[in-house]
Amino acid sequence: MLLSFAQWVQATGLFSAVRMSWYVYPVILSLHLVAISIFGGMVLMTNLRLLGLALKDRLVSDVVDQLRIPKRIFFVLVALFGILLAGSKAEEYYYNYFFWIKMSLLALLAVHALVFRAGVYDKAAELNQVKKMPGRVKLAAALSLLLWTCVACAGRGIGYVEPPLEKLHAEIRTIFLR
């Protein structure tokens, strides 16, 4: 069922257009990475501040609160470009284990948000006063850094999995044989 969904998605006009032009796909991939570098930089600095490793002269709330909106905006951009990339090669990605590892890691990050957002990232102002950062805050920051780094590496891994040509639709197969 997931496979037929993937085949249907990539056959739609938008995703076919991404796939069929030689430059549209790399342009979207580049935009995906531009957004990742900005989003990633903000994730890194937020969590390094919570770990007490960066921006120590700044209030925790100055870092965490001020980066929340841009982080969200750039996450949406990363996701939009990512969906365009994945959708245009949905059938191929269905067979790509790194794609599924990446999606699983993103699911874990959703769990991370459910567990830690209310108690840590929404309470940054309360952390301005503490002398020693509580363990759960450091745990949240360390896990976030670890998971996002793994997401980036898994994303890069997607490009290394050879598509199973014999299983793909003829029209998709021609891209690889060009």
Binding site: I38, F39, M45, L67, A152
Partner: peptide, 26 residues
């Protein structure tokens, strides 16, 4: 990739401040 998240990400934060959009408390 991690390197350009650090470098380009942090440069972009300075850019957003210069654009007057984010990090405006500093």
């Amino acid at each position: 990739i991690l390197g350009f998240a650090f470098s380009i990400g942090t440069i972009a934060m300075v850019d957003f401040r210069l654009l007057d959009v984010w990090m405006v408390r500093q």
